[in-house]
Simulated scan of single mutants.
Amino acid sequence: MIEESVLLESRTLRSGVLERTDVLDRVKALSLLPDGLHVTTAMVAAYFEVAETVVNNLLSRHRHELQSNGMRVLRDSELRNFKKLNLSSYGRPQPRSALAIWSRRAVLNVAMLLRDSEVARQVRVYLLDMEHLARTQPVDNPGLTEPVPLDVRIDQRITHILGRTVVPMFNALIASSGEHRRELIELREDIENVERRMCRHHERLATPEGENPAENVGSTLKAMTWQAFEQHVAGLLRRDGCTDVVVRQTRSDRGIDITGLTADGRTVAVRCRNRSGRRTVPHADLQKFAGAARVLHRVDLALFVATCGFSHESRAIADLTGVVTVDREEVEAWTAGVRLKALR
């Protein structure tokens, strides 16, 4: 197993574990600003129980690495808007010409650079313990006791490549193409159909004989509490490449249950609604969430994920405000392994 001190010296090793930002909360609760995505330098220092000057000195030595992982310095109008939305509840903010804000990924980066902090050391140890367990598990499927056959591993790798590489490549080509746009869209749809079929095939292989995979997924979702469903959706976001995923686990945050960043850096806010039976999401819920996500927090991507359908009024509001609705059928496909289109 790698010694935790090695992380202090190797940027390559640090880069390999930066997705595990959940480790921060396992060691100690990390308080976030109202946007649910960032902390200030003072908050970073408080988390690691060091002086703010220690964090600033670390920033001066490793600025490029920290910036690549979500540390930003705000100035001028961007700083004024950020203060208005996030710092008003902290009293009257002190006048300043610049403000450094840190993503959870950047805070984890600090934990792997900060030598004189017991909290940082605990994060490194916990992080490497988790990484060691992940690497030594023969199969990431508790339902199988034997190694996954080679052809299944190849199929899984193909599915991963289709979802993470080929489809995004077609998205980029479509965005920049004029003459062959229609042909490219048709090819992309064919590839997405292949990806969906392979995901369903994997689901059938993992389901005991005689059971219906779709019914199995549906019953599993139906049995979840609202807290479990939020954690489930957060796990799907992480699986599809999102970082800094935070589950708020509260009913008093204007309808936003999860925040994070997509793989390409867009801010995302998610509302989860676990409703059984034939009930649909009422339009009032859409209005509340759209206002919080689009007006208050100004996120790039707003997702309303539900285990039921959406009323006509709800879909009309979603279309008007740019909220992406994910209904029961889409949640089941997402759970089975199909990557959500909005995250591509």
Rank of each mutant, 00 (worst) to 15 (best):
V119S: 05
V119Y: 07
A120N: 04
A120G: 01
R121W: 07
Q122W: 03
R124H: 13
R124D: 13
Y126W: 11
L127N: 06
L128I: 08
D129N: 08
M130R: 02
E131V: 14
H132S: 06
H132M: 02
L133K: 03
A134T: 01
A134H: 07
T136C: 02
Q137M: 11
V139P: 03
D140L: 04
G143D: 06
L144Q: 06
P147Q: 09
V148D: 14
P149I: 15
P149A: 15
P149M: 13
P149R: 11
L150Y: 12
R153W: 00
R153K: 07
I154N: 13
Q156Y: 11
I158F: 05
T159N: 11
H160T: 09
H160F: 12
H160E: 15
I161T: 15
I161G: 06
I161V: 15
L162I: 14
L162H: 12
T165H: 15
V167R: 05
V167N: 09
P168I: 09
P168E: 04
A172F: 13
S176L: 15
S177F: 13
S177T: 09
G178D: 04
G178W: 00
E179S: 10
H180T: 05
E183Y: 05
L184M: 13
I185D: 13
I185M: 15
E186R: 13
E189I: 13
E189Y: 10
D190R: 10
D190T: 09
D190M: 11
E192F: 10
E192K: 15
N193D: 10
E195L: 15
R196W: 03
R196K: 09
C199L: 11
C199G: 09
H201R: 10
H201I: 03
H201T: 10
E203R: 04
A206P: 00
T207C: 06
P208F: 01
P208L: 02
E209F: 03
G210R: 01
E211M: 01
P213Q: 01
P213R: 00
A214F: 05
S219V: 06
S219E: 12
L221V: 00
K222Y: 06
M224H: 03
M224T: 04
T225M: 10
F229W: 02
E230V: 01
Q231A: 12
A234F: 09
G235F: 09
L237N: 06
R239E: 12
R239D: 08
G241N: 00
T243P: 00
T243Q: 01
D244M: 04
D244E: 02
V246T: 13
V247C: 12
R248F: 11
R248G: 12
Q249K: 06
T250W: 00
T250K: 07
T250P: 01
R251D: 14
R251L: 15
S252D: 10
S252K: 07
S252H: 09
G255K: 03
D257A: 02
D257Q: 01
